[in-house]
Amino acid sequence: MEQYEKIYLYKRIVQSKLFIDRHFANNIDLNNIADEACFSKFHFIRLFKSIYGRSPHNYLVSVRIDNAKKLLTEGVSVLDASMRVGFDSVTSFAATFKKMAGKTPSAYRSQAIIKKHAIIANPLSAVPNCFAQTHGWIK
């Protein structure tokens, strides 16, 4: 396979993806990421997109939103979540979040907290009976 002859390129692009995973909360831009991968910006974007199916910028945004979901589920406020995942403005965060998650950050947070409390109140509600019986959690 032709692409397997390009393992060195793969390693550099994967390193740049991991760089985004680690530093998404910082003020990084494409030039930082391209520098990390030792590519020109244009070449880097093209290769990244060919491997991950989206641009580095879109990937960075999706990582930020995924991490915001985790924070909101833990009960962190919308404002704090937006800042902690690297958005400069809560308005921009809310608009991006709604576009990607299909609901506002506050609605997502409320629903996640309700679900969490329901499970705490009745843990077995999250477990199919067959598994609960296997574990001996219900008689």
Binding site: Q3, I13, V14, K17, L18, I51, Y52, G53
Partner: peptide, 13 residues
């Protein structure tokens, strides 16, 4: 996965 070599390199890392 969509790209095995990329995923393999990431998981190895």
């Amino acid at each position: 996965c969509n790209d095995l070599m990329a995923t393999y390199q990431e998981l190895i890392a």
